[in-house]
Design a protein around this nucleic acid. Structure first.
Lengths: 329, 329
DNA sequence: ATACTATGTGTAACCGGTTACACATAGACA
DNA sequence: TGTCTATGTGTAACCGGTTACACATAGTAT
């Protein structure tokens, strides 16, 4: 690997001049620049990003901490972040935290040691004082952390109301909600949306909440248990994976979807189009959320002002077979 | 951020001594070491990995190039790589190539500039001479690149034979194969397995090949078209996504799975358990493949000898509802 | 003619680690 | 007593970039 000194020697100039050509700053004579570029080409010179990072304290690298890439909600988010970062010449270090604060903390430490320029994280588990101490630009994604920190989230509350109302409009009166883990803010917001909409529909005293943890298997079992005890004709699942679990449970009990029980999920992941019947869902603009978080982080890194600190993107009701009953809707 | 010189000053020693404590090499007096560690703790000192990387030409970072994290086959693979790398204190830079050689080449260049210690890649599109020039340890995953380079793949050929034979045993005689893209080696191996098994079953002249590209939508349409023209009672799809596409197409034509047409996929991604009926598939040990590739890369990086250069992992037939007919199997 | 500014280039310190080499001391062995 | 080895520590160069500062020249305004 050729170094800047090799290039300088070959072009008959000093390293400072080569560096100026490289960074397009300072004065460089046209003819000199030509010679330098020629030398670079001949030596196939590529600047060493590590040396550059050491001096500039910036590495053109960002960290992305997600709970688990294996959870089908995240690949698209990750992809979006990677795409945008790539455009601006940043690379992305991927970290899976399994929702464990301790792992998140460790990753932050490692990322800082590598001089990452910023971090996007999907968590709501940190105290703002701790984040402050990290002293690295961050953007939180999918889950609001604290008003101090820029965030990109979807409108969970409104989405939950939409879903609940949709079930009502399709004829459901005994609407159950499968709730996500209660340490996750967006799950709580969706729950709140369900509660408020139920009250607004005059079904406040007919609420039925099933505890889930955003996972298919656990949701399936919880729904099986609930079906044995309670009567219901509609299920609003806190995410799509749990909606699939509910679908399986309902079918396994010999009931028909949507005729006996209508089901709607949340997130809008591709999976929802693959089941039979296809699942209705409240779709979040996943790619757009990731892309926006990336753009905001870059703005922060480059010291540009943010127009807004908190972005809340709209969600959209997607009606498919799992809630399409008897000509209704 | 405290530097090694700050620590040295506080402990009343030279930077060399601090470095020795840090790296546990050279002689250091016990009492001195105690003082140094004390100073580190007081200053909350964390060594700067960038400075270290510059000198050592090694960064405790590896690159992972996959076609598209959004493709449901890859998240588990990526997760496995990340998990193992994490254990050995490496971090992972994730790159999506969209199967484009040009993007792969660019990523390699960027990764090298960052002094990554090695790269895991999922491609079969490079000439060995080019890879040679990169001069960075690599391991290829899922698709063999060249005998020169360590690889971890599953037994695609045998898996395809298993799937085909299974359809036969379940009563199918007109077995179609949805083929993956022909620039992807594993797709071709599966195709070859299908051909050979069909011949071995005495169905050599009953082969029906549908061209797919590993994507659900395209496969669905191709199967729709094929159903209109040909008669078939079994479909072996080159991957699970296409199997779902086939399932949709068959159901949409008013035919029953598995009674009219049995379907089996390939890969064993979680999605196969979410459809109705659940899909039979040939399951690859995805996590294990990723983990093994990571371990091999680390061995290479650390200059340890590899017992074997090429690992071919066994696959497993997973029978579910989509091929369970009339009490057979 | 003088002062000032814009242009162009080189030297060397610096970023924060690592390590070759020099040097010092103490105990062991002949 | 002299030599050798093991132990312990510091100085300074080095990794490969960036940039403050110095210096030189030419053109321009006064």
């Amino acid at each position: 690997m050729a170094t800047i000194r090799d290039v300088a020697k070959r072009a008959g100039v000093s390293v400072a001049t080569v560096s100026r050509v490289l960074n397009q700053n300072g004065y460089v004579n046209e003819e000199t620049e030509r010679r330098v570029r020629q030398a670079m080409k001949e030596l196939n010179y590529k600047p060493n990003e590590v040396a550059r990072a050491l001096f500039k304290k910036t590495s053109k690298t960002v960290g992305l901490i997600v709970p688990d890439i294996t959870n089908p909600f995240f690949p698209e988010l990750v992809r979006a972040v990677e795409d945008v970062m790539n455009i601006y010449d940043y690379t992305v270090i991927l970290c899976n935290s399994d929702e464990k604060v301790e792992k998140e903390r460790e990753y932050i430490e490692v990322l800082k040691q590598k001089y990452v320029d910023g971090v996007i994280l999907t968590t709501n588990q940190f105290a703002p004082e701790e984040v402050e101490e990290w002293d690295v630009p961050i953007v939180v994604l999918d889950r609001p952390l604290h008003e101090r920190y820029p965030s990109v989230v979807a409108d969970n509350y409104e989405g939950a109301r939409l879903a609940t109302r949709h079930l009502y409009e399709v004829g459901c009166r005994r609407i159950a909600h499968i709730q996500g883990p209660n340490h996750v803010v967006n799950a709580m917001e969706r729950f709140r949306g369900y509660q408020d909409e139920m009250r607004a529909l005059g079904l406040g005293d007919r609420q039925l909440v099933i505890q889930g943890n955003y996972q298919l298997k656990q949701a399936k079992e919880a729904v099986m248990a609930a079906l044995a005890e309670h009567d219901m004709d509609g299920i609003f699942a806190g995410n799509d994976a749990m909606a699939v679990g509910a679908l399986k449970a309902v079918q396994q009990c010999g009931l028909r979807v949507p005729d006996d029980i209508a089901i709607i999920g949340y997130d809008g992941i591709p999976l929802t189009e693959m089941t039979t019947p296809e699942l209705s869902t409240v779709s979040q603009p996943i790619y757009e959320m990731g892309a926006m978080a990336a753009r905001i982080l870059i703005k922060q890194i480059e010291g540009k002002p943010l127009e807004k600190l908190h972005y809340q993107l709209p969600v959209q009701l997607v009606v498919r077979q799992s809630t399409s009953r008897r000509g209704l809707t």
